[in-house]
Design a protein around this nucleic acid. Sequence first.
DNA 1: TGTTAAATCGAGACAGTCTCAATATCTTTT
DNA 2: AAAAGATATTGAGACTGTCTCGATTTAACA
Lengths: 200, 200
Amino acid sequence: MSTAGPAPRRRMRADARRNYERLLTEAGAAFAERGTDASLEDVARRAGVANGTLYAHFPTRQALLEALLGDRMRALAGRAHELMDHPSPHEALLLWARAAVAHATAYRGLATSLMRAVEDETSELHAACRSVLDAGEHLLGRAQRAGVTREDATAADLYALVNSVAWAGEQTSAAQAERLLSFAMEGLRPLGTVRPARGR
Amino acid sequence: MSTAGPAPRRRMRADARRNYERLLTEAGAAFAERGTDASLEDVARRAGVANGTLYAHFPTRQALLEALLGDRMRALAGRAHELMDHPSPHEALLLWARAAVAHATAYRGLATSLMRAVEDETSELHAACRSVLDAGEHLLGRAQRAGVTREDATAADLYALVNSVAWAGEQTSAAQAERLLSFAMEGLRPLGTVRPARGR
DNA sequence: TGTTAAATCGAGACAGTCTCAATATCTTTT
DNA sequence: AAAAGATATTGAGACTGTCTCGATTTAACA
């Protein structure tokens, strides 16, 4: 639950702030149990508020997701920058990808929203998605410069890969997602090289 | 457009048969342009039929998909069996995976349905999905016995992989899907081996 | 306490899913 | 060729959901 709030130009009225927080709480709960397609009518009901109020605060579903996840996504981007110091560029990339998958699995249906939002400039989630994609690009670039990752892989590929794996995890199990991720990340190693017998 | 029809215990009435075919045609068109979430009300409208008629013929959306895709899916399974004779087990697996991705990309949203249906025994699509999964298992098994594919990969992994890639393709582009597929399939090679410099 | 800007309310317009009793249509039989 | 019987179609209706906007309420501040 973020404490940042909705970018208030001036301080919000007390009732507005209260409703904003309640809506966020209930939306988080609803998304957690029903996925990102949960009924917004229901969210408003659970927050004890008319649905018009929900739409006043969050004009779109993506706005709700941004409010719910924006901070965490920026933290994920930050984590990528920290990992730039990790001794093994390939390991760093794998660790970060794993974290990104975990993030994209927060709610059922989230991977789809994240994928849509990165393309759609008008989405409230767009900026957060971009920051994640850009962060991935740094890690990927370092791995490529170190010669431990295929040159033809792009940041967009990495973003799609992470979200695809998260999507698969939503449909089946976290264990399968982890296995898929390890396959795909191994597949990013350059062709014509000997791969370490232990996948680390 | 299948000519198999709806498993008629006895011959269908002429009007029923006509409506069945029309519904299938329009559903195919609607799914093609709107994805698998297209409005069924609209499908019925376009077919010039009341929506109750649609539900009489196809009790669920998945029933419609089975009628539309069942034959093609069984053909895909058949293709796997043909490929068992291919000289390169790894190449055979790759070729088949590519065909499976192409199939799962027929409609936007299809990958999700295919993933759901393989888990859900009550789905009308379940049997067709199983036959695809089982077919993949044969190809995968041969590649593993030949020592060109990781032992820890399962048929479920392959199924999930193919559908994840198809999903990514839906969200972005066929080109990116192809790249993701090639990464993942390379990643299926056994650890501790030298990989060919050209991905074939 | 009165004023005012801000926020909330909730009915209403619309679209979609799915069901089922009434009705219509085809097929078969005589 | 008409009636009987089986089969299929109809479309209104009960839901659930999205989203908007004019009327109303409420908090903030002098």
